[in-house]
């Protein structure tokens, strides 16, 4: 039998009395891009932070390539091949953009292919190139616009050459043209190949996004979260026609 690529089972996270993630189970294959949507406060960001090892879940299991990763340190998870971005961007503010990305290139996974010392900078530059902010390489991160910070997050995540990439609202702060460009890059990243010094055999992806029309163009499958629970999964077409999903979104608008 084929080994499961990525699988979450019965994941639960409580903040005091609030159950932010409630018995969530789903799987992602390496050859698919999965959209994760849901109204504000549905628990999407909490879910990905748990996967990245930044928050500890109360119960449930997370398996990646046959190994349990729940309870592992964030850096171990990155070095196993899962990288994610933060919705509220977390740059190293007083460091130049290129240095921000070089930090990820210095992680064990970032330099496992013998990419050492001098290549680190070149590799970081390629990641910036891919994210479309290489012309800002020497600016301190504190000077960046919101949209550019989002791209920095992506550059930093792909610098470790992950096999599963999780993007939390990658299009936030980008105008329609930039969104279009980034969407293309994301598809390219998914297919894999060589991007300068970055290699990829194609990566599985989970993308959280509120800009649904853009999201639906690039995902193969959508998971809908509402009050911490999965209320629907299906192809983009099925999801936009699903009455439960429409109600979850409209219910929120009406309130």
């Amino acid at each position: 039998m084929k080994k499961e690529f990525f699988q979450v089972e019965g994941l639960t996270k409580k903040f005091g009395g609030l159950t932010a993630v409630d018995h969530v189970s789903f799987a992602v294959h390496r050859d698919e891009v999965v959209g994760l949507i849901g109204p504000n406060g549905a628990g999407k960001s909490t879910l990905v932070k748990i996967i990245m090892g930044i928050l500890k879940p109360d119960s449930g299991s997370i398996r990646f390539q046959g190994k349990e990763i729940r309870g592992k340190n964030p850096w171990d998870i990155v070095n196993m091949g899962i990288a994610g971005t933060f919705q509220n961007t977390r740059p190293f503010r007083r460091m130049p953009i290129i240095a921000n990305v070089m930090v990820a290139c210095l992680a064990p996974r970032g330099r496992r292919r013998g990419e050492w010392v001098k290549r680190v900078e070149a590799k970081a530059k390629d990641a910036l190139e891919f994210a479309g902010i290489s012309d800002l390489a020497l600016e301190p991160a504190a000077h960046l616009s919101h949209g550019d910070l989002k791209r920095l997050e992506i550059a930093r995540a792909i610098a470790t050459e992950p096999e599963l990439l999780i993007l939390d609202e990658p299009f936030g702060g980008l105008n329609p043209v930039e969104t279009e460009l980034l969407a293309k890059s994301i598809r390219r990243l998914h297919r894999g190949g060589r991007f300068g010094r970055l290699h990829s055999e194609g990566m599985g992806m989970i993308i959280i996004e509120h800009k649904l029309s853009e999201l639906m163009k690039i995902v193969d499958r959508v998971i809908v979260l509402h009050f911490g629970q999965i209320i629907a999964t299906g192809t983009p077409q099925e999801i936009v026609e699903n009455p439960a999903v429409i109600e979850a979104y409209l219910g929120k608008e009406g309130a």
Binding site: M52, G53, I54, N73, P74, W75, V78, N79, A83, G84, F86, R90, P91, F92, R93, R94, M95, V103, A104, A107, P108, R109, G110, R156, A159, T160
Partner: peptide, 10 residues
């Protein structure tokens, strides 16, 4: 600068 972000960078 940001310990959490450093961890998430591996």
């Amino acid at each position: 600068e940001d310990e959490i972000a450093a961890r998430a960078s591996g």
